[in-house]
C-alpha cells in the first residue's frame, strides 16, 4: 500500500460530514496544485464549500452566494499568472449564481469546479435545480414535480454552447476509478486556464449522505445507479488539444 502525502496547500482538516463528496474533490484539487507547481487563488461561495474556510494556504476568498465566478473574473484580470478557480455547489453555481456562472463562461479565463449533490446541502437539503424528478427534499416533500418545478439542470452542457468555453466535463467520485478520472478532468481544465485560452468547467457528482438520509455506501450506489442516468459522465466539450499543444 502506498500512502499519499498531504499536499502543502492544504492547511488543516475540513469539517465535511463523513462520506461527503466535497472532501474528495478538494483533495484532488490540492494534489493537482502541488503537482502542477502553480500558485492558486481559491474562491468559494456559500454552501458546504464554506467548510474550506481557513483550510487553504494559498490566497482564499469566501464570496457572496452565487457570485464567486464574477469575483474570480475580477481577480484573474489583475493576476493573470495565478490559477484562479471557483469551488461552488450546484445551488450556488446554477441556481442563485446562474447569471455569474454563464457570464464567466461567456468570456472569462477561469476554471469552475462545481459540486453537484442534487440539493442545497448547507441549509438542510432543499430542492435544487439539479434535484432529480421524484426526489424528495425539504421543499419538495412529495418528490420533485419536474413538470411544475423544472427538469434536472445540466450546467456544463449549457455552458458548452459558448465559444469561449473550451472544456466542459462531468466527473464523479463514487469509486476509485471515477476519482482518478475526475482528477484527470480537473487537470485538463487547469492546464487550459494556465495556457490563457478560455474557460473550463468540471462538475462533479457527489453524495450528501446527511441530507439524503442515506449511508455513504448507499449514497455512492444511488449516484452510480440513479444520478448518472440524468447526468452523463465524461467530456462534454474539449477543444484543448490544439491549444495545449501550441502552449507546449
Amino acid at each position: 500500500m502506498t500512502t499519499r502525502k498531504k499536499p502543502e496547500v492544504w492547511k488543516k482538516d475540513s469539517s465535511f460530514c463523513p462520506g461527503c463528496g466535497h472532501g474528495i474533490v478538494i483533495r484532488l484539487i490540492a494534489e493537482l496544485i502541488e503537482e502542477m507547481g502553480v500558485k492558486s487563488r481559491e474562491l468559494h461561495a456559500v454552501g458546504c464549500a464554506c467548510n474550506l474556510n481557513g483550510c487553504w494556504n494559498d490566497p482564499q476568498l469566501q464570496c457572496p452566494h452565487g457570485r464567486a465566478a464574477a469575483v474570480a473574473v475580477g481577480a484573474k484580470a489583475c493576476e493573470p499568472d495565478d490559477l484562479v478557480f471557483t469551488y461552488q455547489g450546484d445551488g450556488d453555481a446554477y441556481v442563485i449564481g446562474l447569471s455569474e456562472t454563464m457570464n464567466a463562461g461567456y468570456r472569462g479565463n477561469i476554471t469552475s469546479i462545481i459540486i453537484n449533490n442534487n440539493n442545497f446541502g448547507m441549509t438542510g437539503g432543499q430542492m435544487s435545480w439539479t434535484t432529480l424528478p421524484g426526489q424528495t427534499t425539504t421543499t419538495s416533500k412529495k418528490g420533485r414535480d419536474a413538470l411544475k418545478e423544472g427538469e434536472p439542470f445540466k450546467g456544463p452542457e449549457l455552458l458548452s454552447q459558448f465559444e469561449n468555453v473550451k472544456f466542459a466535463a462531468r466527473g464523479a467520485v463514487y469509486n476509485p476509478a471515477e476519482v482518478n478520472k475526475t482528477k484527470a478532468l480537473i487537470k485538463k481544465a487547469f492546464e487550459l486556464q494556465m495556457s490563457g485560452e478560455g474557460y473550463g468547467v468540471v462538475e462533479v457528482l457527489c453524495g450528501c449522505p446527511t441530507n439524503w438520509k442515506m449511508s455513504p455506501v448507499d449514497s455512492n450506489k444511488w449516484i452510480e445507479d440513479a444520478v448518472t442516468r440524468y447526468y452523463g459522465l465524461g467530456i462534454i466539450k474539449d477543444e484543448t488539444a490544439k491549444i495545449l499543444k501550441e502552449a507546449i
Partner: peptide, 11 residues
C-alpha cells in the same frame, strides 16, 4: 429562497 435561520418558513 432558503437561508438559515428563516428556512422553516418556506419549508
Amino acid at each position: 429562497y432558503p437561508i438559515t435561520p428563516q428556512t422553516e418558513v418556506m419549508e
